[in-house]
Write a protein that binds this DNA or RNA. Sequence first.
DNA 1: TATAATTGCACTTATATAAGTGCAAAACGT
DNA 2: ACGTTTTGCACTTATATAAGTGCAATTATA
Lengths: 78, 78
Amino acid sequence: MNTEYEKLLGQRIRFLREARGLTQEQLSARLQLNNCDITRSALAKIEVGQRHIYPDELFLIRRLLDVSFDELFPDYPG
Amino acid sequence: MNTEYEKLLGQRIRFLREARGLTQEQLSARLQLNNCDITRSALAKIEVGQRHIYPDELFLIRRLLDVSFDELFPDYPG
DNA sequence: TATAATTGCACTTATATAAGTGCAAAACGT
DNA sequence: ACGTTTTGCACTTATATAAGTGCAATTATA
């Protein structure tokens, strides 16, 4: 079961992706070029918080979107 | 299946935990006080890379261990 | 060295999960 | 308004996963 926090993360990813003018298809393609098998379907789910995202994936996305930790990660609640 | 990167992450977690003189039991107890159900068993597995760690968990651990992103997260390879 | 504390691991089982697919809906551009 | 692109979602199924348990092994402490 997915958490609120991951939904927030998904929203940030989407926001940053769109800010760069990338479609889900395009970003997922770039991920796959980096040996990360996030398909368009998977990315869609991640963005709406319906699929877990793993550390590798998260940090690769951070790199591809070229953002700092602080920009990508909402503060952990509490 | 678990990745090399998550093994690295586990090692960092262990290192930082021990540096603070905490046992797996103690750290897992603190996690649970923060509504994170990582048992001793789960933490043991995370540290040796036999269980996935999710963003919530990762960032909570970061907070409990009181470290920066850079201290906790090895650079994503590549 | 004896005792206690801590951690690793193998095993099992119920459950969660990811992935794919196809289509509907929404957004976009002309 | 129309066609096109993009995204959401429901559904299915095979697979991965987490959790627990108990004990062995390792490490610490007296």
